[in-house]
Simulated assay, not measured.
Amino acid sequence: MDGMTRKQVDKAESRDFALGPGPLRPRDAATLILLDQEGGEIRVLMGRRHSRHAFMPGKFVFPGGRTDPADSRVPVAENLHPDEEAKLTGAPGRTSPARARAIAMSAIRETYEEAGLLIGRKGPFATAKPDWQGFADQGVQPSLEVLRFVARAITPPGRVRRFDTRFLAAWRSDVAVELADGGPTNELEELVWLPLGEAKEADVPTITRTVLDELEKRLTEDPLLRPGGAVPFYRMIRNRFVRDVL
């Protein structure tokens, strides 16, 4: 998508997003790319959104959603790795540590709510926040240290909904509990583990395919996804979609 004009992006995403006048300021959002390495092949968890949803109906996506600032106050077993926090809080557009923490925590919460996967480590956990009660019920302390910041993208103007989305990644081995019946919401109709190559060929939004391409390249260079890796950042500047590196 790098270098595409707004007209070209609108055409490419016309089946992904509802076009029309929307908010000028994008809202913070986070999504989690959960990876599983089995038999030398890397698979990624994706779910299909309900066809009735206004935002990306029927598309395969990663678990994720809008950031809740209150998530920053939920206790964790381990904080973000310093190199990852530096990437999340750095330029352009400085982000406070509390906001970065909320963004990262929302990716963990949404993965629980939509996929029934609790990322963290086993141990006593208590909270008064109902959105995190499942972690208390399962005895799981959420952990941010396992997350890797792998991409960022801001929805171009002219969409009914706009998000400033941070794409985070973790390994399936970082999941402390997998609920047999999935998560408590019905955001996703179907959850599947797809090889990276197949995931790019599925019915996914254009930006999702772009992020998968980026992640595949990073995994080729760094199979362990070490902290502090380069983060591609996609956004519209002067009527052209550009790729920067954080």
Rank of each mutant, 00 (worst) to 15 (best):
G3M: 06
K7M: 13
K11A: 13
D16M: 11
F17A: 08
D28R: 13
Q37G: 03
G40Y: 09
E41G: 11
I42C: 02
I42P: 10
R49S: 09
V61S: 08
P63E: 02
G65W: 07
D71G: 02
S72W: 08
P75E: 05
N79H: 10
L80I: 14
H81M: 06
D83E: 15
K87N: 09
T89P: 04
G90T: 12
P92V: 02
S96C: 12
A102S: 02
I103Y: 06
A104S: 14
I108R: 02
A115I: 01
G116K: 10
G116P: 00
L117D: 10
A126S: 06
T127D: 06
D137F: 11
Q138F: 14
G139R: 01
Q141L: 06
P142Q: 03
S143A: 12
V146S: 01
V146L: 08
L147Y: 03
L147E: 07
A151D: 04
R152L: 08
A153Y: 14
P156I: 13
P157A: 00
R161G: 08
R166E: 12
A169C: 09
L179C: 00
A180L: 15
G183H: 04
P184A: 03
T185M: 05
E189Q: 11
W193K: 06
E198M: 04
A199H: 07
A199N: 13
P205Q: 09
P205I: 00
T208A: 15
T210P: 07
E214Y: 11
K217V: 15
T220E: 14
P223T: 06
G228K: 06
V231F: 02
F233R: 14
I237L: 11
N239R: 14
D244S: 15
D244H: 10
V245E: 15
L246W: 04
